[in-house]
C-alpha cells in the first residue's frame, strides 16, 4: 500500500460570493507524479494556491507528511516540504540565476542579522554551503552556464528550469509545478519530461498542473480532474480518460 504524503478533505475556498473550490478532497502518495487537470476556470490554480499556502481555505482539512497545514502561512508550508513554481514564471528578475536559487535556500538556513554583520565562522560556512548547493542545483537542471546572468535575461526554457531549481533548493518532499510546459516547443517539453522523471527518481513527489492532457496521461501515475471547483474524477490515467463525467467536462468546453 502506498504511503500517503498529502491529504486534503472538504476544502472550500470562496471569493466574496463566488465559490471557487467546493469540498475538494484528494490524496497524493509518496513518490508519485500526480496530475491535476480540468478545463479553464475549473479551479486548478486556486487549489494549487491553497496547497502552497498562498490562499487560505475557508473550510476543510489539510495534512502533509503528518503535519496539519490547514490555513498555514506560505513559509510554514515551504518549511513542511512543499515547493512550487508559477504558471507565469515569477523569478526575481533583477537577481542572478545563482542568487535566485540561493534565495530558495533561505528556509533551510539560519543565519540572522547578527551573524550577517559579525560574519562568524558558522555563518561563513553556511553561506558557502548555500552557494555550493545552489550551484549544484543549477547543474542539476542544466543551466550552470547562466549562473551569473540576471534572471530576466534568460531564455524562456532556462527561466522555467531556474524556477524548478529554486523550488528544489527548499528541499521539498512535494514539488508542485504549475503548467511547466506552457509555451514550450516539443523538444523542450521532452527535456522537461525527462527532468521530472529524474526528480521523481530522486525521491521527490511531483504535483503537476498541465493543460496538455496527452502529456499528463503519459507522465502521471494518478490524475484528478476538477470542473467548476469540484473534483469529478481521480485515479490512474486509463480509468480517468474513460470516465464519462470527464469526457463531458472537456467536451462541454470544447465548443466554447
Amino acid at each position: 500500500m502506498a504511503e500517503v504524503l498529502l491529504k486534503i478533505d472538504g476544502i472550500v475556498k470562496r471569493f466574496g460570493g463566488l465559490v471557487a473550490l467546493s469540498e475538494v478532497g484528494l490524496t497524493i502518495n509518496k513518490g508519485e507524479i500526480y496530475g491535476l487537470i480540468g478545463p479553464n476556470g475549473a479551479g486548478k490554480t486556486t487549489l494549487f494556491n491553497v496547497l502552497t499556502g498562498l490562499y487560505m481555505p475557508d473550510e476543510g482539512s489539510f495534512t502533509f507528511n503528518g503535519q496539519n497545514l490547514f490555513r498555514a502561512k506560505p513559509h510554514v508550508v515551504v518549511g513542511a516540504g512543499i515547493a512550487r513554481t508559477f504558471q507565469n514564471i515569477r523569478l526575481f528578475k533583477e537577481m542572478t540565476a545563482l542568487e535566485n536559487v540561493m534565495v530558495g535556500r533561505h528556509i533551510r538556513s539560519k543565519a540572522g542579522a547578527l551573524g550577517a554583520v559579525l560574519r562568524d565562522p558558522r555563518t561563513m560556512a553556511e553561506e558557502r554551503a548555500i552557494r555550493d548547493k545552489a550551484m549544484e542545483l543549477l547543474a542539476y537542471v542544466g543551466i550552470t552556464e547562466v549562473a551569473h546572468e540576471f534572471a530576466k535575461n534568460l531564455s524562456y526554457g532556462h527561466q522555467r528550469r531556474l524556477e524548478i531549481a529554486r523550488a528544489l533548493a527548499t528541499e521539498p518532499k512535494l514539488l508542485a509545478l504549475d503548467e511547466p510546459a506552457a509555451g514550450m516547443n516539443p523538444r523542450e517539453t521532452e527535456e522537461l519530461k525527462a527532468l521530472m522523471e529524474k526528480i521523481r527518481a530522486s525521491g521527490v513527489t511531483v504535483l503537476l498542473i498541465e493543460h496538455d492532457v496527452k502529456l499528463m496521461m503519459g507522465l502521471c501515475d494518478r490524475i484528478a480532474v476538477l470542473d467548476y471547483g469540484k473534483k469529478i474524477a481521480e485515479g490512474v490515467p486509463e480509468v480517468v480518460r474513460r470516465d464519462p463525467k470527464v469526457i463531458e467536462a472537456y467536451l462541454g468546453v470544447a465548443h466554447e
Binding site: T52, G53, L54, K73, P74, H75, V78, G79, A83, R84, F86, R90, L91, F92, K93, E94, M95, E99, M102, V103, G104, R105, H106, I107, S109, A111, G112, A113, G115, A116, V117, R119, T123, E126, E127, I130, R166, A167, T170
Partner: peptide, 30 residues
C-alpha cells in the same frame, strides 16, 4: 554593517521580497 547585511542571507531575502513578495513567500521567506 550595511554592506554585510546586503550581502547575506538576510539581504537576499530583502531583495527577493522587494522584487516579488508573493514569490518570496512561496520560497519560504517569512
Amino acid at each position: 554593517m550595511a554592506w554585510r547585511l546586503q550581502h547575506s542571507r538576510i539581504g537576499r531575502a530583502w531583495v527577493a521580497m522587494r522584487e516579488d513578495d508573493i514569490a518570496a513567500a512561496a520560497m519560504g521567506i517569512n
